Amino acid sequence: MGITIKDIARICNVSVGTVDRALNNRPGISPKTKARILQVAKEYNYRPDYVAQSLARGRTMTIGLVLFDLYNRSFAQLANAVEASARKRGYSVDLVLTDKDPAIEKEVLNRLHARKSDGIILFPINEGPEFEEYLQSLGTPIVTICNRLSDHWDYVGINDRQAMKEATQHVLAQGYEHLVYICPPLAYRGVTNIYTQEERYQGCLEALAEVPEGRKVSLEVIEDKDYVEVLRRMPLEEQKTAIMCSCDAYALEVMHYVQYERQLRVPDDVGIIGFDSIDVLKYIRPELTTVEYNVEQMGCEAVNLLLERIESAGSQKDVTVKERKQRIIDYKIIQGNSL
């Protein structure tokens, strides 16, 4: 059995409270005494008893992070940002993945609740009153990110609709006559929560609705998960075509297909635009035009908002709709060489 705080206090002939202040860098202790305590702790290889600390604090000092998966680099970047921000505040992160499965989402939420996570950052795949009632029953502070549930929940995200509207207007300003919009999640409308993707699609439609009379612009929407297979059947060269992708992951696969299988030039033969500005784009040529928002800021804002709820000691049910907060992250269009 390792040395305890009581053992260190006895060796240094000080109180347990003094040892606690030294080990946790709190004020109210002389530099000489603090140095002596830290030296003894080092000599005896002291390791904190996190279980005991959790019992004393009434917290586990862990938060849950629920994401779809880590295939999309923006999710991985978000997870890194949440972990780094939480660690700075003394919390560890329990990352769980749902694989976009509503049933798995409930399973992992139950698991986080059973582990007594102090709070949860949730990218929800479920939606609706029944699911929200279930979340309320957990009695755990929850901050939603990207996919909105309702005004009953704290939320961090971007204005996806306006961002995609501006991105579409940017494409139209380049003189494109035919738009191919790729967004496989649209196939799950009414089945799962696709708030983010639906908002982006609606933004595209709003931009097209404002095209001046006399200008003809056609739109083709691909909701099939095998979107490259659908592209194979399209005569992309017949009109001035831009392929609009609802995330960069789709755009990169499309660019690879267009350039290496279809042997078309980007942007001379076909234009491509993405969304998310994931970090690997710096390795891609031509540079992809995309919508950028600060994923790291999103993660930090989610942690800060969640810890506000945790440290206010109020349960999920104690916060009224009027007290709910939302943090909307800025975005901008990054002009690459793919349009």
Rank of each mutant, 00 (worst) to 15 (best):
L65G: 05
L205K: 10
I120L: 07
I222H: 07
I125H: 08
V96F: 04
P184V: 09
L55Y: 05
I104T: 14
V280T: 15
D268Q: 14
I278W: 04
A84R: 14
V19C: 11
F123W: 12
C146Q: 12
E229I: 00
R200K: 15
A313Q: 13
R21E: 04
N193I: 09
E301N: 12
P102V: 06
N72I: 06
A173Y: 03
P102Q: 11
V108G: 03
R265S: 14
V180Q: 05
E43S: 08
L23A: 04
C183V: 10
E237V: 05
P102E: 03
L70I: 15
D94L: 14
L135K: 14
V51W: 05
R47K: 13
G139R: 01
N337H: 08
W153H: 13
L231D: 00
L307E: 03
K240H: 10
Q174S: 09
G58Q: 04
Y257H: 09
Y293V: 10
V280F: 11
A103E: 10
I334N: 07
Q316G: 01
Y293H: 15
R10D: 09
H178N: 03
D7N: 13
M164F: 13
R73E: 06
E229Y: 03
K100R: 14
I120A: 08
L288R: 06
T168S: 09
R148H: 11
R324P: 02
E177D: 02
I145K: 10
V143Q: 06
L252H: 06
I328F: 05
I120N: 10
N294D: 11
D318H: 13
K42F: 02
S277H: 14
E323Y: 05
V270D: 01
R89Y: 04
D151C: 05
I104V: 13
C245S: 07
Y91H: 12
M234V: 08
P184K: 11
G274D: 01
V295D: 00
P124W: 09
N193Y: 05
E287I: 01
A79P: 09
R161A: 09
A56R: 15
H113L: 01
G90Q: 07
A163C: 10
V254I: 07
G175S: 04
E287Y: 03
A86T: 09
W153Y: 13
C12W: 00
P212R: 02
D7L: 02
F131S: 00
V258S: 02
R161I: 00
L306F: 06
A209I: 00
L252G: 06
A56Y: 09
P102G: 06
R57I: 03
V221F: 08
K225V: 10
V321G: 10
V82N: 02
G64Q: 03
